[in-house]
């Protein structure tokens, strides 16, 4: 006889309770996104108030709009809260080592150029630990879409300061305020040669969805930077206890400036949060350049 607490027996698993109460349908599978999600893994591990679920919804809805053959779409993630995305999508997905999502994605693309490769990872993974891979994939104009969710800290490991933490940002490893200058992810990608760079907060979900749709259709290295609340790691140390408070902040400080110079879009702890589509140009991709050079070499 197990201990009983408000009708729940501790010797029964949650799954047994779900089945006994008839909640299985309610939890696993009636939502329109459920055909693209591994619903047996829901509810996901992301905290209440985290923007990652919204970012994932926008991505899946953009993916559905783009009408790609879903058997040819691969999602690659690194480590971190955002890295869990690869485990939640019902697509071919790849959960890689820390910071190395882009090298794995590059390998996939070069091994089978028919694939549509999407890298969905966080700022700590893509630009802090994998920063060198990030700039070199952009430099080569590798034909991958990178969705970088930026929450200004290492959320999963306890809210440590990273390379995107703004100056003065209080984190668990910078209790008196961060004194390092941060990376501006959009500017970094634009300076390294990305053909499509956009930045949106999760609050601007419709525009974000459209931007991801454009990025998916763009040949070459496309980056969508998503600014997302992290109430547990970052927000609560900045008077934003709930995810909703951070969304209010985005509402008040978000400035939409399409075509803005990426160098002037630095994000601070206060002041304007510039967002929009910064770069959209056409450039031959890595594979096009390679086959062109090969044809030239063979002619000689």
């Amino acid at each position: 006889m197990g201990i009983e607490m408000q009708g729940y027996r501790l010797d029964k698993t949650m799954e047994q309770h779900e089945e006994a109460e008839g909640w299985v349908d309610e939890i696993h599978g009636t939502h329109p996104m459920d055909d693209l999600l591994r619903t047996d893994r829901l509810p996901h591990i992301w905290c209440p108030g985290c923007g990652l679920g919204t970012a994932l919804t926008c991505f899946l809805s953009a993916l559905r709009k783009s009408k790609f053959d879903l058997d040819k779409v691969v999602v690659v993630s690194g480590i971190g809260c955002t890295g869990r995305v690869a485990g939640y999508v019902r697509l071919d997905s790849f959960h890689t080592t820390h910071g190395r999502a882009i090298p794995f994605a590059t390998g996939l693309k070069l091994g089978n150029p028919a694939l549509k490769v999407v890298v969905f990872s966080g700022d700590g993974d893509l630009v802090t630990i994998g920063g060198n891979h990030f700039i070199h994939a952009a430099r080569r104009n590798m034909d991958i879409t990178v969705i970088c969710v930026n929450n200004f800290n290492y959320g999963m490991t306890g809210g440590q300061a990273g390379a995107t933490t703004p100056v003065g940002g209080v984190t668990s490893t910078s209790p008196y305020g961060n004194y390092e200058y941060p990376f501006n992810v959009s500017a970094l990608a634009a300076a390294s040669g990305a053909v499509y760079v956009a930045r949106w907060t999760v609050l601007h979900a419709r525009r974000l969805e459209r931007s991801i749709h454009e990025a998916l259709l763009k040949p070459g290295f496309s980056l969508v930077e998503i600014i997302s609340p992290c109430p547990t790691g970052f927000g609560r140390r900045h008077k934003q206890r709930e995810g909703l408070d951070t969304l209010h902040y985005y509402h008040e400080h978000g400035v939409i400036k399409h075509g803005a110079d990426p160098r002037e879009t630095d994000i601070g702890l206060s002041g304007a949060l510039v967002e929009g589509k910064f770069v959209d140009l056409d450039k031959p991709t890595f594979l096009e350049q390679r086959s062109r050079r090969l044809a030239q070499a063979l002619e000689k």
């Binding site: 939502h31 329109p32 996104m33 459920d34 999600l37 829901l42 509810p43 996901h44 992301w46 985290c50 923007g51 990652l52 679920g53 919204t54 919804t57 926008c58 809805s61 999760v202 609050l203 979900a205 419709r206 969805e209």
Partner: peptide, 13 residues
């Protein structure tokens, strides 16, 4: 459909 798009938990449609 804004609630559906904003919901981080896939819990409303």
């Amino acid at each position: 459909g804004l609630c559906e798009l904003l919901c981080p938990e896939f819990a409303i449609y």
